[in-house]
Nucleic acid binder design. Structure first.
Lengths: 247, 247
DNA sequence: AGCCTTTACGTCAACAAGACGATTAGCTAG
DNA sequence: CTAGCTAATCGTCTTGTTGACGTAAAGGCT
């Protein structure tokens, strides 16, 4: 390890990719966006949307670009945060490829379409991936596990739940987010009280929505708060297990 | 963006480094470990310990290796977690270098020594870095900010505070961790009650330590819990800025 | 034996949270 | 029109947690 000045060429042979775990709630299930790979390696297999970071590109713009290219998901309103980086030496057969994983949360969107490097993009229930029923390319199963864990944790002490909802939503829609992501059931009345007491979590729009049945629900918009105080504590809820913990 | 099969050489010109934010509590202050760079670029400037990931190395082993090489900090007991990856295209003058930042927490250790690529390693109060009194190379200021934020958050809902303490410690030492890292003062009696009620946070050793003065303090060891329930809530404490060193 | 210091335990009031009853506001069936 | 259905919202009660703060215990020192 001699101290040399200037670039050290022996270290500059790596590639960096981004992979995005896009979560949404569809049909009362937590679902993840997968693409069918159109190129080798793992051609035809299911994988997370993602791709190489360009030579002059930062990681987050690359994640948004890949989402747009492969899944036509591009809306500015998409919540996107970095998850963590996976750098195991043999994780990619093409060579030394390090991937920066991102977590994205989307409201229930129209079925996405395929794009350049992906033949098709589709939503898949998270349990089917975590249980091993659906196999993913590379180490993407581990990335999904990590992303789902992160989302579950962040519901507790941030206002992330609103990212699963459209711009205006009802109290019940918001409560379903917690119930579906955590796999528990929550008392609607206590939830209503708690959420309306948390400062800056929700802003009432004044409007109400008339469903097919039942009393019309007030509509809310997300408030300016990004952290939730007091937090929603999972530990307090009865331990209702969800079918998961795969592989 | 044509779909080609096999490796795509145009993407394989990058280097990946690790940088580690090592935090500890010394002299009742939160301090960060810095090295004086012994090589270009930024030779002589202060920076986080770190370096290139080897061609067949994963990121976390690289972080431990660099810590050992540059600062002789190597003990297996060191808490280490990945923070996030910084990938701005121009963040390193040597070329396209993406860095995976790690957060390490250490108990009050002997003053570390320099190593291969670092002329010297030393502890620096975090406030002196965050305030700009001490300038860091690259984008390392941003990495320190991110790491300190993470540590502050994790004290709330995990048992991370014990990572700042030696293997056995007193209740007061643990409380000082919260007070110093958060910059608040905490009622010793309520803290004692809360911490002893949290399941698996602490295990009494049965021993006690006799200080110069005052009643002997019971000694504890960290328990098996990794998450803290109920959490310690910062928002609940009065916004008491603690009289902190200088600045 | 007093005195000081620090740790440990106790009490009380305010408040948050779980359980669950009751009311409200829309619809639809008769 | 009214009864009945459903879902949303509000209220009550009880339990547990928290912040404020009083008090006792256990050392050393003079």
């Amino acid at each position: 390890m001699a101290a040399v000045s200037g670039p050290q060429p022996q270290f500059f042979g790596m590639a960096v990719t981004v992979d995005v775990v896009v979560l949404t709630i569809r049909d009362d299930e937590l679902q993840v966006l997968l693409v069918e790979r159109g190129v080798e390696p793992f051609r035809g297999a299911l994988a997370l949307p993602g791709g190489f970071i360009g030579p002059d590109e930062d990681a987050e713009p690359a994640a948004r670009r890949e989402l747009a290219e492969e899944t036509a998901l591009d809306r500015g309103g998409l919540y996107l945060e970095q998850l963590r980086t996976f750098a195991a030496p043999a994780r990619d057969p093409r060579g030394r490829v390090v991937t920066v994983a991102y977590l994205a949360i989307a409201p229930d969107l129209p079925v996405p379409v395929g794009g350049s490097d992906a033949r098709a993009a589709r939503w898949q229930p998270v349990w089917s991936v975590l249980s091993g029923h659906v196999k993913l390319a590379f180490d993407h199963l581990g990335i999904v596990e990590y992303g789902v864990d992160r989302a579950r944790s962040k519901l507790e002490y941030t206002t992330l739940a609103t990212a699963f909802c459209p711009e205006v939503f009802t109290m019940t829609e918001l409560r379903r987010v917690y119930e579906v992501v955590w796999g528990v059931s929550i008392d609607a009345r206590n939830f209503h009280r708690k959420v309306t007491n948390a400062a800056d979590f929700l802003e009432p729009t004044g409007e109400r929505r008339v469903l097919e049945t039942g009393r019309p629900a007030a509509l809310y918009r997300r408030g300016p708060a990004r952290t939730l105080f007091p937090p929603m504590l999972r530990g307090a809820f009865p331990p209702v297990p969800l079918a998961d913990s795969g592989a």
